[in-house]
């Protein structure tokens, strides 16, 4: 089981740094984040191999959403390092962060589509704002991306006119339209029924293959999400409790993980750490 410990914290930062593979799109080392007295991330160390789908799972309050917010540079850690595509991002200024952000696309939990814009304008938005492409080129790219997520013909609709699943597809199209190297997904199936959940998972896998992406996904949708994942990281009490391929994690025979899969409270919820997600 690579880089996996079933007895708590993964490894210490130094040894993990030494063993970090060259094929990692993102490397997280000994990441800490506190909110008041609450230690939400307590030394997370984790690699996200390039060209793979890595899914972060864990009970409410385990720190998975906070970890994702560090990876997409919406939060700065108190300590530790994050290397994205070879760039250490935790000390970067605004311009440096924007340069790194150009490399990834993000699918938010509720889609975060702009209500006042049509689906076409939503998907075209990153191209209009951040590139010098001509209108015809933008239109072509948008159509192509909408087709890839199965939303061709929906260009003139507004987000409120679409179902939850279609909104997620449109948001995915917006995240993909600039052809990012890394795709981050925050609970992409929240609020969807099982059939739509399956369809979104299938779409994520297809997209990852077609666009040659590294995908980082936070999900509570276990064990369904394992079908689409190459690797799984299980966070517990703000630490990487398990990390490896799906088979490795499932074979770990870890009590905490088994309790989590069985849907039993792991202690976080009782401590009221919902903020950590």
């Amino acid at each position: 089981m690579s880089a996996t410990e079933s007895n708590g914290q993964q490894t210490n930062a130094t040894s993990a740094r030494d063993t970090a593979g060259a094929g990692n799109a993102i490397e997280v080392r000994d990441l800490h984040k506190r909110f008041g007295r609450q230690h939400v991330l307590d030394g997370v160390t984790l690699d996200f191999p390039a060209g793979k789908i890595t899914t972060i799972v864990g009970p409410s309050g385990s720190g998975k959403t906070v970890l994702l917010k560090h990876l997409n540079l919406l939060m700065r850690p108190d300590a530790g390092s994050i290397v994205i595509d070879g760039v250490e991002v935790t000390k970067l200024g605004t311009i440096g962060m924007d340069a790194v952000r150009e490399k990834f696309g993000m699918l938010f939990q509720a889609g975060a589509l702009f209500d006042s814009m049509s689906i076409f304008d939503n998907v075209a938005f990153p191209l209009v704002e951040k590139t010098r492409l001509k209108r015809t080129e933008i239109a072509e790219r948008v159509q192509e991306t909408l087709k890839a997520v199965g939303l061709d013909g929906m260009e003139n609709k507004y987000p409120s006119q679409l179902s939850g699943g279609m909104q997620k597809r449109a948001a995915l199209a917006r995240a993909l339209v600039r052809r990012p190297k890394i795709l981050m997904l925050d609970e992409p199936t929240t609020g969807l029924d099982p059939s739509r959940t399956g369809a979104i998972h299938e779409l994520i896998r297809r997209t990852q293959v077609n666009f040659h992406l590294t995908a980082v996904m936070v999900s509570h949708d276990v064990p369904a999400v394992f079908e689409v994942s190459d690797r799984v990281a299980f966070l517990h009490h703000g630490r990487t409790h398990l990390n490896g391929t799906v088979n490795e994690v499932m074979a770990a025979n870890d009590e905490v993980f088994k309790r989590f899969l069985a849907g039993k409270a792991s202690g976080d919820e009782e401590n009221g750490t919902a903020l950590a997600g």
Binding site: L73, M97, R101, Q109, A112, F114, F125, P126, E129, K130
Partner: peptide
């Protein structure tokens, strides 16, 4: 409303 539906975060992540 944009804040609560993460639209402002979406702008930030798009480097806007």
């Amino acid at each position: 409303s944009m804040q609560s539906t993460e639209q402002i975060d979406a702008l930030t992540v798009m480097a806007i």
